[in-house]
Design a protein around this nucleic acid. Structure first.
Lengths: 236, 236
DNA sequence: CTGGTTATTTATCATCTGATAAACTAAAAT
DNA sequence: ATTTTAGTTTATCAGATGATAAATAACCAG
């Protein structure tokens, strides 16, 4: 209670007549200001969640809160723009090319993929906004995980089948259980970013080493297991 | 203003003389009411997050909002009790006994552990409250992950070393990278619950099958990898 | 049945918070 | 220099929200 939001305007004496230091209210072109707001909003909402208040966002930008409403009709509209900003990059890259180039060892392909993928998504802002959105019940997350299943995990699955001398996904369709198996590795690596950026826990810096080992174990283990009948796809 | 808080007292006609249906304001003993509030608060905050409003919580309980403040001085106090309720169960069970019983196959031990562990933690309320708390910056999560590392992952690591004919953790201490390796499987399985309860994504029902396969692959893969020099602990 | 205890409600406060309208002013146009 | 445009602030609203005090009534003891 009584958490004063009024900043320190009270303890700034009215005698402070330093004109130059007073930051003479610079004006930006609309397009620039809008982008500036979005950029700061990404950082702000990533830190505070979407219940963060518009006045505080304004303060971080050095502008007043009503100015936000010149550029975004509602807070919700601003949030949608933030989603776009963070999410838009995801459609663009075509990971499957990286994953399915069979002229290279599978281990290397997976490692390189996670190098690129983690650069894009294992970031403080990305991870946290993604999780905040998920907890809010945004549809964004389901759409994204479906995209991941289609564009990343399914190709991975096919390559893994090939690696283990098993029929391709065209010959034998993928079951959810098989996707979930790949999800364990994929989610396990993603969880590294969750531990880092959401739990603020201690994680080793050498993420490529984690990836390399996880991939190596997964490949070797899958090959060994696929030799046993019990883990084969049961339809046959 | 004039958002009527009085529930549906307005649209209940004064002629409704059904004494029984009118729910004549039952009183509970303080202890029972307190527990009832906590139980509902767990469900409520799990769904809405901790920015959920006390009036809505009261409505779900069929009581007025000020009554909450008879039992909990502030909303924060109620939240702390919710943390306790969800978190308290964690200290009690001693997983290491289950994990370190070398008279049983390691695969079975790991599978049984995840059966019990998931029953406790892969629940809607637990997962979501845990994630909400983490995003709020609560210290609960770091404490918990440290507990997991100490009580679960470290024993697992030791058993895995033994399984791969490597020196015990007493002979050669565990590095963070090695913990992170186990974290990939552990977090990967936890991520199944995240996909289910936070993303509301499609997951296969047969979680034990996922565990069994993930464990089998991890064990076989680790054994295969440990034969290669490149993935040995480098100090030696 | 009566009176006391206390669980519960009603009424209300103070502040927060998203949003709007009008005044203001820096920068561009003439 | 003057006018015009448009970026920004000041003032303010309406509803939301955590919290408090006093009134009410259900339950229990005698």
């Amino acid at each position: 209670m009584a958490t004063q939001l009024t900043k320190d305007s009270s303890d700034r004496s009215p005698e402070s007549d330093q004109k130059s230091a007073a930051a003479p209210r610079r004006r930006l072109r609309a397009v620039n200001r809008e982008q500036q707001i979005i950029d700061e909003a990404v950082s702000f909402f990533a830190e505070k969640g979407f219940s963060g208040q518009t006045r505080e966002l304004g303060a971080r930008l050095g502008i007043t809160q009503p100015l936000l409403y010149r550029y975004f009709p509602t807070k919700r509209d601003l949030i949608e723009r933030v989603f776009n900003e963070v999410y838009l990059n995801l459609e663009s890259p075509d990971w499957s090319n990286l994953l399915t180039d069979r002229s290279r060892p599978l281990h290397d392909r997976f490692c390189d993929f996670y190098g690129a993928y983690s650069d894009m998504t294992y970031r403080y802002e990305w991870i946290r906004i993604f999780m905040f959105a998920a907890l809010m019940g945004e549809k964004l997350n389901r759409r994204y995980t479906q995209l991941v299943e289609k564009k990343i995990l399914t190709p991975m699955c096919d390559e893994l089948r090939h690696y283990c001398d098993q029929p391709s996904i065209e010959e034998k369709p993928i079951r959810q259980l098989e996707l979930d198996h790949i999800w364990v590795m994929h989610g396990g690596l993603f969880y590294y970013a969750i531990r880092k950026h959401i739990y603020h826990g201690r994680v080793s810096k050498d993420f490529p080493a984690i990836v390399s080992r996880a991939v190596a174990v997964m490949l070797a283990g899958s090959k060994a297991i696929s030799a046993q009948a019990s883990y084969q796809t049961t339809n046959g």
